[in-house]
């Protein structure tokens, strides 16, 4: 489903050259739940940006659903992001001036669905994340956990094949974090491929596979079996 081969990402300024990813390779299969861990500055976010087509890489090859995405135009990249990828951000990234319904509606409008279809999908995902009664609330009127649920609903509304979560519980207390993790696991169980960036080993253990990044390279990969044994 996702295949990165020898991806390198170099940030250059006039005086400094920073290698965020070096010859980074990773294969993620359909329906997998992969946790990406690593210390600060290891390249986790760069990996996530490239995986989510938020950033272009310097060299290497990236196939998404078997298609080389490195040469896509900006508008085609936007289309792929909109149709295939759902994002969940650490800071929720809800639009503060829009209510819950309109927030979930944002990617659906870019998709070009008609009003009835959008309504059906929004109501469906809000029910799934348990926020049907909060559709008219503004983000500021919700708790952190509820806001993240809205963000997940927004990510799911377009029925992506691929969910990218960047520290999805980083801003939540443990109780809320647990409920969000349970929701992500449920989404994965439904067949959606999940890649979750986290620095929390306990959360990483709940994934099917844990990819550890250090200095822009995959330093270690643990499978379910190994994770259970380690536990």
């Amino acid at each position: 489903m996702l295949s990165m081969q020898n991806i390198s990402m170099v940030y250059r300024t006039d005086t400094v050259e920073t290698h965020a990813l070096r010859e980074f390779s990773l294969e993620v299969g359909e329906g997998e739940f992969v946790a990406v861990t690593g210390p600060s500055g290891s390249g986790k976010t760069t990996f996530l940006n490239i995986a989510g087509l938020l950033e272009r890489f310097t060299s290497g090859k990236y196939l998404l659903d078997g298609k080389d995405v490195s040469s896509l135009s900006d508008s085609d990249t936007s289309k792929v992001r909109n149709e295939k990828i759902g994002f969940v951000f650490q800071g929720f990234n809800l639009i503060p001036d829009l209510n819950v319904f309109d927030n979930v509606d944002v990617p659906l409008r870019y998709r070009g669905f008609d009003t009835a279809e959008r309504k059906r999908r929004i109501e469906g995902v809000l029910e799934r994340v348990g926020l049907s009664s909060r559709a008219k609330h503004l983000p500021s009127q919700l708790s952190g956990g509820q806001q993240q649920r809205v963000a997940i609903a927004r990510a799911l509304a377009g029925e992506p094949r691929f969910l990218l979560a960047d520290e999805p519980t980083g801003n939540l207390d443990s109780h809320m974090a647990e409920s969000i993790m349970a929701l992500i696991e449920e989404i994965n169980a439904g067949g959606t491929t999940v890649i979750m960036v986290t620095h929390d080993p306990a959360l990483a253990e709940r994934a099917g596979r844990n990819v550890h990044i250090r200095d822009g390279q995959v330093s270690d990969v643990e499978t379910d079996v190994q994770l259970v044994a380690n536990a």
Binding site: D74, S78, R81, N82, F87, N93, Y110, R111
Partner: peptide
Amino acid sequence: TRRALGASKSS
């Protein structure tokens, strides 16, 4: 965020 969710530059 809008761009990440699929908005093109022209959108």
